[in-house]
Write a protein that binds this DNA or RNA. Structure first.
Lengths: 194, 194
DNA sequence: TAAAAATGTTAATCTATATTAACTATATTT
DNA sequence: AAATATAGTTAATATAGATTAACATTTTTA
């Protein structure tokens, strides 16, 4: 089992002892998914938090009319799950699906609690990660209220330049909260402007 | 200094020893604000996290055109701050303003880190609070994409029945991401429907 | 390599919500 | 109590973005 990417990621911010590292490794599992497979489905209980080693996922909500609304993309070195379902162990509102073949490290709810209880500096580290995810989410709400779709797209390109290359355009439209047709129009307008 | 509401709140979920309680109390400060006063202003560094004892605040972004966009209301037993600025100690994107006379307990960034380092079960507790705030924020994004303004309003009424009574209507419109005129139209439609 | 499926584009028309403006009602201050 | 500021409503018009539909391109599968 190759936990090295997770350890590298953690060691960028804090240092774990040999013993802590071994304990962490003993609690996590490695898993591969193929493109198209679901990590979590709406209605399931989200049992695991996932750290992506390679690949790409989308987290989306399927509304009553069958339309997908993407909240989040995740790539290498990101965490993904349905946080709401994971923490309450209630049925998920979101789907998490692989949009590339994806390798990841999974941690169950119980193991996560145990790891963080045993290693307080990891608990501290994760608190801070969630704090910044929350802050980013609040900023995203504001952008969706105060920017036009075109402005939001330019922001997205700038903030996630690599994701735009990796995922189909209609998913970017979904992430921006617009239709693929309107997204297409925006892109052609921008192409004319320069 | 009356820290009792904060202690009651914490004790609903975890129990602190006498010693831990005294340590916590020694680190926090009490403060009153008048209606209209700002706890944080856009561009300031957000130095404190606030636990509201009484009163009500709004957290909003003022866009280039001078329009307010409310991300969050907070009332008794809620936390408020500009989380992004608080954790990075970088200039705030948001304003936090009192919309009633407000009494609260403040914790500085440094004291917060110290309290959570000293009392691991509090760190755990706060990690979970932030996790649920994050999950709620993701759900809010989805609602803004998949529901009409009228549906979002009905959801808001149901989820925060007390807030609607306490704050001016134009702020609810701002929270919902619509103009006060359109909000007025929605309400009159709903009044006709029943 | 042909067929099928998935993805992306263009254009016409429609709709939810914004904008503007004029007005009414409610608080706050003098 | 009058004056002023703040909040809320109504209605006409304007617009960003949705919907529909037809077509073009790329990718996957047989």
């Amino acid at each position: 089992m190759n936990a090295q990417p997770l350890l590298n990621y953690i060691n960028k911010y804090i240092s774990l002892t040999e013993e802590e590292t071994l304990f962490l490794i003993s609690k996590v599992t490695f898993r591969k998914y193929l493109k198209g497979q679901y990590i979590v489905q709406q209605g399931d209980i989200c049992k695991k938090q996932c750290f992506i080693i390679s690949g790409c996922t989308k987290t989306f909500y399927m509304d009553a009319g069958g339309q997908e609304h993407i909240v989040l993309f995740a790539i290498e070195d990101w965490w993904t799950s349905d946080m709401g379902s994971f923490i309450t162990q209630a049925p998920a509102d979101f789907n998490v699906q692989c949009i590339e073949n994806t390798e990841l490290i999974q941690i169950t709810y119980e193991d996560n609690e145990e790891i963080l209880r045993e290693i307080p500096k990891l608990e501290r580290f994760f608190r801070k990660i969630v704090e910044s995810a929350y802050a980013a989410s609040q900023k995203r709400i504001i952008r969706s209220f105060s920017l036009t779709a075109k402005e939001q797209y330019l922001f997205f390109k700038e903030q996630y330049p690599t994701i735009e290359q990796r995922v189909p355009q209609y998913m970017i439209a979904s992430y921006l909260g617009i239709t693929k047709e309107f997204f297409s129009k925006i892109k052609s307008q921008l192409a004319i402007e320069e």
